[in-house]
């Protein structure tokens, strides 16, 4: 079993962010070093204030945002950002922002949630994720 999990988080829809955050928390719990590369929609979701941003659902759940929000509240589903915070608290988890996306969206490091450690290029991610089990979300 690989001791590292690497994730390319490209999607900014709430369902995928939730899946990624739960995976990160589970992997951190199981003692894996987790490296997350945030790009495109995935990075856009990490703008400051993410916890209060409106939910974004993919096409198959289009129009169901209000219903989903209600279900998640009723079932006490934690916000995906909290899962990433928890993951970082219990294990070794690193979140990196894709430099090219930063440039494209005119984002600065201070525009992002402080959970994001550093702005890097893809080569750095490839280096940091060497030997890891890697997923694209």
């Amino acid at each position: 079993m690989s001791e590292k999990l690497a994730m390319i988080l490209e999607s900014g829809t709430t369902d995928k962010l939730m899946a990624a955050s739960i995976l990160a928390a589970g992997a951190a719990a199981m003692g894996k070093e987790v490296t997350v590369f945030l790009t495109f929609g995935g990075l856009n979701a990490f703008r400051k204030g993410a916890e209060n941003a409106p939910m974004v659902m993919p096409d198959e759940f289009a129009g169901m945002e209000a219903q989903m929000a209600q279900i998640m509240q009723a079932k006490q589903v934690p916000h995906w950002l909290k899962n990433f915070k928890d993951a970082k608290e219990i294990g070794e988890v690193h979140l990196y922002a894709c430099g090219a996306t930063m440039d494209m969206f005119d984002l600065k490091k201070e525009d992002l949630e402080p959970l994001v450690e550093e702005v890097v290029g893809v080569a750095t991610f490839i280096q940091k994720s060497e030997g890891a089990q890697t997923v694209f979300i």
Binding site: I22, A25, G26, A29, K75, Q76, V77, P78, N83, D86, E89, I90
Partner: peptide, 12 residues
Amino acid sequence: SFCPGPLMELIR
């Protein structure tokens, strides 16, 4: 508490 909440609580 929703997955993986209980495990997180235990670890903490």
